[in-house]
């Protein structure tokens, strides 16, 4: 289970997270939505321990992430796979080396089995035989799928996806969400997905949480979001252009 309680954070005096609380049960899938700059990525970074919030607490399973030092956090991060908004693939390494990276570092899989595992995972994300390419030789959609392969190759029980479909065409977007759902079902992982593609996201999530101005403005099933009192929540969930929203 992932539990976030009363998360607050400010950058140079400007509040970016205001009392954010949410919860994802083990094996559950949560969609985190909201306008740009709402603090969605920061919530993921706080869960992973990459951001030390000014106040509030975060639990990943029994571990209170916000109370752990950098060394102790390593053990928690070993259970998390994370997809970054801007790919964050290692430029100096090939696709194969990028995807193999978590396995090589964790040392949980024999070295001779790593290549086969990498090939299988790349085939699963519909990118077979590109191990030798460098990230700079890939398109945006391919990079996202390589990120997905890297984040999931060690079968982490928790998966944090920061806008895994940003800037992608609808077909690739659908393909990535299908892959995420398949991987979640396959591995039974607890998943949090940040995305603006609510129409594609909602069907694979148990619940949606919407942030606006760093605060939670909606937390519930997608169907409830479509009937929410807040017009911006309805617009987000229905994917209607904002000029149609009555204020």
């Amino acid at each position: 289970m992932i539990r976030v309680e009363g998360l607050c954070h400010a950058f140079e005096g400007v509040p970016v997270l205001r009392d954010v609380s949410l919860q994802v049960p083990t094996g559950g899938t949560l969609g985190l939505i909201g306008p740009g700059g709402a603090g969605k990525s920061l919530v993921l970074k706080a869960i992973c321990g990459l951001l030390r919030p000014d106040s509030g607490r975060v639990w990943v399973g029994a571990d209170e992430v916000t109370a752990l030092g950098e060394r102790a956090l390593m053990a928690v991060r070993g259970r998390i796979g994370m997809i970054f908004q801007n790919y964050a693939l290692f430029d100096a390494l090939t696709v194969g080396e990028n995807v193999a990276f978590p396995l090589m570092r964790l040392g949980t899989v024999p070295a001779e089995a790593v290549q086969a595992r990498v090939a299988a995972r790349l085939a699963q994300v519909h990118l077979p035989g590109i191990e030798h390419l460098l990230p700079s030789e890939l398109s945006g959609g391919m990079k996202k799928r390589v990120c997905l392969a890297r984040a999931t190759i060690h079968a982490p029980p928790i998966l944090l996806c920061d806008d895994p479909t940003a800037g992608l065409d609808p077909v690739t977007t659908g393909r990535i969400f299908t892959l995420l759902k398949a991987l979640q079902a396959d591995q039974g992982a607890t998943v949090i997905i940040v995305s603006h593609e609510v129409a594609a996201l909602a069907p694979i999530c148990d619940r949606l949480v919407m942030l606006r101005g760093g605060a939670v403005v909606f937390d519930g099933p997608a169907a409830e979001g479509a009937r929410a009192a807040d017009p911006e929540v309805r617009a987000f969930v229905d994917q209607r252009p904002v000029f149609e929203v009555e204020r």
Binding site: K45, C48, L50, M74, R77, F84, N86, L89, P102
Partner: peptide
């Protein structure tokens, strides 16, 4: 510096690597 601004350093930390 490039690794830092492109979140590659954060990616390392997220992969439990110091």
């Amino acid at each position: 510096g490039t690794m830092t601004v492109t979140e590659q350093v954060d990616a390392l930390r997220a992969l439990a690597i110091d």
